[in-house]
Structures are given as C-alpha cells and as structure tokens.
Simulated assay, not measured.
Amino acid sequence: MVSADDLTIDPDGLRAGLPGMTVLDARWRLAGRPGREDYVEGHIPGAVFIDLDTELAGEPGPNGRHPLPDPARLQEQLRAKGVRNDKPVVVYDAGDGQAAARAWWILRWAGHRDTRVLDGGIAAWTKQGHPVTTEEPNTTEGDIEVKPGSMPSLTADEAAATANAGTLIDARVAPRFRGEVEPIDPVAGHIPGAVNRPTTENAGDDGRLRTAEEIRDGFAKAGVQDGVPVGAYCGSGVTAAHTVLALHRAGRTDAALYVGSWSDWVTDPNRPVATGE
C-alpha cells in the first residue's frame, strides 16, 4: 500500500501499481562495486537504473562531493529513463533507503511531486516473494519538465544560520560528528551549533521508516521544535536526504537539505569547525 503521507510505498502496493508507475533503481555504495552491477544481476521488472554519482548529482568539486545536478542535464537524463510529469515514480535501493531518499529528494526538488520510496527497498520486495529480472526494459521518452528549487535547500551560510536560529541536524554517525574520525573529507568535526541524530535512527532494522509518532519523538529529543527552522546535512547530502524524508513523515515538510553538506563546508578554511558533543 501507499503510506498515508504519500512518501513511501510497500512492495505489495508497488506490485499492484505496475506498470502504471516509473520505477528507478538507485542502488549505490560509498565504496565498493557500482550499484549498476547489482542492477544487472537482478532488479524489479520494468525498473531503470539511475546513478547517484553521475545523474543525481553534479560534478564533485568546490560545492561538495554530491552537489546539485545541472537542471537541463537532469531533465535530459530523467526523460531518457521515461519519467513523465503525470506518472508516479517509485525509487528504491538495496534496503536502507538512503540512496533512494537522495533520488526522492532530487526528483521532488525538480518538481516531480508524486515520487515515493519503496519502503525496505529491493530486500523487502524479494522477501515478500516478488520477482526480479535481468531484462532491461525498453523505455519510452518521458516529458518531465524540471523545475529546480521545488524542495527547500540550504547554502553554507544558510546552514550556519539554521544552526543558530533553529535546529541543524548532522545525520552522520556520532564519531564523525564529534571529529574523532573522518574517513572521507579532509577535516573532521561538525558545523558549530549542529546537533547529531544519525540517519540510522529513522528506520528499523529492516530499513523501513519508523512511524510518524516515533520519528517526531526522536526529533523532539534532538531539539526540533514546531515553528522553528530545521535543516539537515551529512557528509555529501545523501544520508541527510533520508533525514529530510523522515522529517516529512513527522510533518515537517519545510525541512531543508544542505546538499553540499560537510564536503562543501570544509572547502572554505574560514568556516568554523566544532568537535566533541
């Protein structure tokens, strides 16, 4: 079924809705073999692969490791995958929902409101006995018109302002937030004033989003308050997209994503860095 908040869909709901939905396979790893190889070995029938590194983000550089994609190029790529203005889109990943949430956020940022995440990803799909295939579909050219800016986002300065005037959530694991380790970016620590709530707290062990009440309680403990600005960041704007998805489930559709995240913040040596709790 489709969730009441139109953010997620379960495997049975997706199976019942095919072929009236465009399905995008967004499997991705920070390191290791490319998600495209997983797709080739088996995917949901009718699904088209979308690459997080090259299609759901721009070129890495001074704006971070996964900056916003160029709108014109994104439109061309989404149309090639069959994405239409008037047809629902379902995105999925291996199961934890993080890469799928990045795809969800980018499509909604591009103006495609009827985009949902397959709750539990392909792991939930196969667990419920639904088929996979190695056959790649023939896609019909889509007609999506990308309208960038349809989801709230933050620049570095706006992220700092949110940390001061509202709640800026750092979605990374606690040791990275505290600056004890930093396996990827050149500087360890966090944005001053940010609070830590790892993305893993948004979902259960099966990767499915927790209930709205559970998520609201968790964010309240992290300091999120009604009527006060809230934003999220992580290392490069992937896991924090899942935090924004969870905030939407909690009713905070105004939640903003700092897309460049820590990988953007540390490109300017004049920006302050905090460590510890």
Rank of each mutant, 00 (worst) to 15 (best):
V83C: 09
G97C: 10
V90A: 13
G64V: 05
V90S: 08
H66Q: 11
H66K: 14
Q77T: 14
L74D: 01
R65Y: 12
G64P: 03
L68R: 14
N85T: 07
D70T: 10
A101P: 00
K81L: 15
K81G: 03
G82P: 13
D96F: 05
P69S: 00
Q98R: 05
G82L: 09
G64R: 11
V89G: 07
L68K: 13
V83L: 09
R73N: 04
A94Q: 14
A103M: 03
V83I: 10
E76N: 12
Q75F: 14
Q75C: 06
P67A: 06
G97K: 03
P67H: 10
L78M: 15
Q77A: 10
H66S: 06
P67C: 08
G97H: 04
A101T: 00
A101S: 13
A99C: 06
R102E: 00
V89Y: 12
R84W: 05
D93G: 13
A103N: 04
L74E: 02
H66E: 02
A99Q: 05
L78Q: 05
D96V: 08
A72H: 10
A80R: 12
V89N: 08
K81I: 07
K87I: 10
Q98N: 00
R84A: 13
P71Y: 13
R65C: 07
L74P: 01
P69K: 00
A99V: 06
P88C: 12
E76K: 15
G97Y: 01
Q77E: 08
Q77L: 15
N85H: 03
R102C: 02
K87V: 15
A103C: 11
A94G: 15
L68S: 02
D93A: 13
A94S: 15
L74R: 08
N85V: 04
A103Y: 09
Q75W: 14
P88D: 06
E76Q: 15
V83Q: 07
G97A: 10
N85A: 09
G95W: 02
L74I: 06
A72N: 04
H66G: 02
A80K: 09
G82N: 08
Q75Y: 13
R65M: 11
R73V: 10
A72G: 03
W104R: 08
A101K: 01
R84V: 07
D96G: 00
V91G: 09
P71I: 09
A101W: 01
A99P: 09
Y92M: 10
R102G: 01
R84E: 15
V90T: 13
P88T: 11
N85Q: 10
A80C: 02
P69H: 01
R79P: 00
Q98H: 00
A101E: 01
D70Y: 12
G82I: 11
A94Y: 05
D93L: 14
Y92C: 07
V91W: 04
L78Y: 07
N85L: 02
N85G: 01
A100C: 06
L74C: 05
Y92F: 14
R79M: 02
D70S: 12
L68I: 06
A100K: 02
P88L: 13
D86C: 05
L68D: 02
